Simulated assay, not measured.
Amino acid sequence: MDKIKIAIADDYAIFRDGLKVGLNQDQNMEVTVEAGNGTELLERLEKNVVDVILMDLRMPGMDGMEATKRIRERFVQTKIIAVTLHDEDSFIVHLMEIGANAYLLKDADPLDIREAIYAVHLHGYYFNDLVNKALLKKLITKGNFKPAFNQKVELSDRELEVLQLICDEKTAIEIGTEIFLSPRSVEGIKQRLIDKIGVRNTAGLVLFAVKNGLI
């Protein structure tokens, strides 16, 4: 496989350096962009296309939340992983709603960070079992937030089938093989789901499925 090109955005150079050394040890990954805040990151992304961004939320100038919104508008295919000290429910929910593909804490094991990178690159999302998925389900069960989903959406049997397989972390090729469709047709159904439900990415589809008891 081609190397996964990675950007790191964090205002602490020592943190960036540590991540860079660790990730570059993986032969399938390469850190090609570094930035100290959101403004620097956006400027450098104009000249260097990356697959995955590891981004802190609290940075001087443009923070990670604002940068996430702008990246979603300008670099649709780029995956965003929030890597932060903040484990508050509001941060997690808000980041997933505005388009982040994963949310990790800075004390995450290096293996978990690499796993998250592979997951968002291949599947479009990564929910850490100990933090993200547990907190999201807890919030949904208690009704503590109202995502900006289209609540009146009606999905066909085929769309529900594809949504379930997406939640099972299947790729478009794997889904196509299982339900006898071309990968292109699967991608078309996936985009239709995104448009119908009113989310920004695959992570949003999974969040919708969890909220509505589909998984």
Rank of each mutant, 00 (worst) to 15 (best):
K3C: 05
A7W: 00
A13P: 07
D17P: 01
G18Y: 13
L23V: 11
N24S: 14
M29P: 08
M29S: 07
E30M: 12
E30T: 03
A35E: 03
N37T: 11
T39E: 12
E40W: 01
L42F: 09
L42G: 05
E43L: 13
L45Q: 07
K47W: 13
D56N: 05
A67T: 13
K69D: 09
K69N: 06
R70Y: 06
R72C: 03
R74C: 03
F75P: 02
Q77P: 00
I80V: 14
V83G: 00
H94T: 15
L95Q: 01
E97N: 05
G99I: 10
A100W: 04
A108N: 10
D109R: 08
L111C: 06
D112Q: 12
Y118D: 13
N128A: 12
T141S: 15
T141Y: 10
K142V: 12
K146G: 13
P147I: 07
E154P: 02
D157C: 05
L160D: 09
L160K: 15
E161V: 15
C167H: 03
C167R: 12
E169P: 03
I173A: 15
E174F: 08
L193W: 01
I194R: 12
G198I: 14
N201P: 00
L205T: 07
L205W: 08
L207R: 00
